[in-house]
Design a protein around this nucleic acid. Structure first.
Lengths: 102, 102
DNA sequence: TTAATTTATTATAAATTTATAATATATCAA
DNA sequence: TTGATATATTATAAATTTATAATAAATTAA
């Protein structure tokens, strides 16, 4: 049903939907910050925790969202978990944002 | 008070806040579409209405938000109101998005 | 084994955003 | 002046997002 509805959309509407959905993830300050940090390379959850202003639990949830979207991927090493950017388009976007706004 | 809090933030936190806030505006499909349309040049509310999937009232409200953020500006001509992109950074961002995702 | 550390999960309260309906205002044409 | 058209405003219901607290699970060190 929602699939059918999506298929009815014009290509432009569809693009707007796709891209806006993805931008929603970047529209939260701490999530954006996480992606910026990771654009500089891999980091453990603990390292990210120190550089964002989130509680442990909250950070974990936000990381989950980014992972669910396929933006980041993880690697386990002992009891640490390292995350890194997984989507090249997101990497490009972060770079564009830095170029334009920072 | 909230000002004081903002001043306490590190420059990086501050950037994340600024930019995420602005991305929030682009993270709504029809708002993003409006900006994309306007990146192709001026358009009247009525023209925008025909190319988005919003009610008249809803469109007006969304346009208001974009205007309040300084993303777009208006010009009145008779009973029509024309809007156009007002922020060069937003224009650049829309172009980047199109390049990366479309 | 026990305790400490690192990360995830679940439930939920609080805040914000989105959408709808009703109404208002301004401009023009007849 | 009246009616039609274009746009804005206000109130508010509904949906979504964000944040907090409590708890769980996995790993390592002692």
């Amino acid at each position: 049903m929602s699939t059918a509805k999506k298929l009815e959309l014009s290509p432009i509407q569809n693009n707007a939907l796709r891209v806006s959905h993805l931008l929603r993830q970047l529209s939260h300050p701490q999530r954006l910050l996480i992606l910026c940090l990771l654009s500089g390379g891999e980091a453990s959850v603990h390292e990210i925790l120190e550089r964002t202003e989130l509680s442990q639990s909250h950070l974990s949830q936000e990381i989950n969202k980014l992972k669910a979207e396929g933006f980041i991927s993880s690697r386990k090493e002992g009891r640490l978990i390292y995350y890194k950017l997984h989507d090249q388009r997101i990497k490009k976007l972060i770079q564009s944002l830095q170029k334009i706004f920072c």
